[in-house]
Amino acid sequence: MTGNIVNALAIIAGSIFGVAFKNKIADRFSDLMVEALAISIMVYGVSQGITTQNPLILFASIALGALIGEAIDIEKKLNDLGDFFQSRMKNSANVTQGFVTASLLFCVGAMAIMGGLQSGLQGNHEILFAKSFLDGIMSVIFASAMGIGVVLSAISVFVYQGTIILLSGLIKPFLAQEVIVEMTAVGGVLIFGIGINMLKIKRLKLGNMLPAVFVPVLIGFFMNLI
């Protein structure tokens, strides 16, 4: 769990630094930073999404994953958790937004999955250490724009990646290179959606789409059977 712990601590440290910075800038600059981040995230999401080698798998994964997530209602559970934290933090606004947005961004990427597998199977934490550096920088920027809620995403990341680490032995046999490519593409679509939410173009229930990242594994499994 070393890499996972370092990742969570990097997010916490970056978020605290970002919140301290946020208090020194005017709201209009914070709003502009959110918009700039949203556009950058959308471009990154597109760059990941177009890596798909089979658009049908991408479409099917998003659709099926959304159905699974809607049945579980992951979005509501994330929002309820964010609201719980916000109710415990006096004089703190938008805790839920920062928590949910940062949690989704730090969890849906390929590095979270592959880093967890590498850590669990090999005891090698290189990917998670690299991810820690990137997440730390992003958490500074996010927290400076969206507030203290970003620090709470460390909990989501720790639980999510920790689960992958613990189950790595079971997951690894199903992760052929073509499956990883499609998982990355699905993650890119969700990252693009994060930008849409940040710009308030439309409120997408991205939490309920999280299972879509793992649907290519199921599709790959059934295709091998056929």
Rank of each mutant, 00 (worst) to 15 (best):
S92W: 09
D83W: 12
E126K: 12
D83Q: 14
L218M: 13
G18Y: 07
I219K: 06
V46G: 09
E35W: 05
I226K: 04
E35R: 14
M146Y: 05
S87W: 03
I201W: 09
A26I: 07
A102K: 10
S61M: 04
I113W: 00
L199M: 14
D83Y: 14
L104A: 12
A26E: 15
L64C: 11
S15T: 01
D31I: 09
V157T: 15
A143Y: 07
K200F: 02
V217Y: 05
A20E: 09
V150C: 09
V189H: 14
L218S: 10
M89K: 02
L134W: 08
K90V: 15
A66M: 14
A20P: 00
I12K: 04
I41K: 03
F99R: 08
I127D: 00
S40G: 12
K200I: 04
L206E: 01
I180A: 00
G45K: 00
Q53K: 15
L128Q: 01
N54P: 01
G14L: 04
G116H: 01
F84S: 11
A154R: 05
G115H: 08
L56H: 13
Q118R: 15
F142K: 03
L218Q: 06
Q161G: 09
G136S: 08
G3F: 10
G162N: 00
G147A: 10
Q118A: 08
V140W: 04
Q48G: 06
G162L: 05
Q122E: 14
S156N: 11
A8K: 03
N79E: 15
D73K: 08
I180W: 01
N197Y: 07
N79Q: 14
L206D: 04
D31W: 05
I171N: 03
S30D: 00
S168F: 06
T2Q: 12
N54G: 01
I148C: 06
G109I: 02
N7V: 12
I25M: 12
Q177Y: 04
M198K: 03
K22S: 12
I41M: 05
D83C: 09
M198Y: 03
I57N: 04
F84Q: 07
V19K: 08
I11F: 01
I50T: 15
M89A: 13
S15G: 11
L225C: 08
M138N: 11
G169H: 14
